[in-house]
Amino acid sequence: MALIEMNLYSEVLNLDIPVSIILPQNPEKPLKTFWLYHGSTGDHTLWIRYTNLERYARERGIAVVVVTAHKSMFTNMVHGQNYAEFLGVELVERLREVFPCLSAKREDNYVGGLSNGAYGCLRIGLGYPETFCAIGSFSGGDAADQYFTDDGTYRGRRHVLVFGEGNAAESEHGVKFLARRLVEKGGPFPSIYHAAGALEPSGQGDGLTWFFKDLPFEYQFEIFPGVAHEWKLWDAALFKWIDEILGIKPVTPVFYS
């Protein structure tokens, strides 16, 4: 396996963006590709530093792309750049142009993320459903469904930069909005694997479990016992999600507990 650190120029952002790519050497067929997003304080290096990601990739023969999206929350910022367009369109197109070994088929492309990136992968997966067939959202939900105001705090200001003042749920930032829009259009519907730790605030699914219940999405919510908002959970959930997508049944179903 090769671990590639790429500096990719984005026209959409007019910025050089660092991207980490885990790539099988001498691939024999187009590679199934997992696109992973980081948390609010993270970058493209964390998935590789804190999980067994490269080992999973080697064992399963897949490609993995981990990208930095800074503080954009993976959406088109109200006061900032169009990160959703970069992540959902430009990054995918450019990497497939550079690496024709990456599969361009929808059924071979999956988007996942943790915490802030858990919202991000729902935002991108539901916003660009023709590109991604599956979403793996770990410890997050509809981050846009809150009332945001610049109350002088760092958190308040950061959210206003991304979503603007007020509630952004009924805009292209809203997970539920994007899902409903997709239902109206009649698909295609990415499958959603939603995981959370029993000991964290989003352990109840952030209100998405009831929402997706009645929609035509293949939605699965799983609570991992004994873990909080932490890498132990995301490492286990990622491995489980990869195997579910590839149809690999673990020898011990409770290997992660």
């Binding site: 396996m1 090769a2 590639i4 650190e5 790429m6 500096n7 990719l8 120029y9 550079v98």
Partner: peptide, 26 residues
């Protein structure tokens, strides 16, 4: 051009080695 830095598993020297690459631009 885009700049790639990587660590690859080599077969002939049988050791991981770093490689830098420049690939043609869009």
């Amino acid at each position: 051009m885009d700049y790639l830095r990587m660590q690859i598993q080599t077969h002939a020297p049988r050791t991981p080695l770093p490689v830098d690459m420049l690939v043609p631009g869009r």
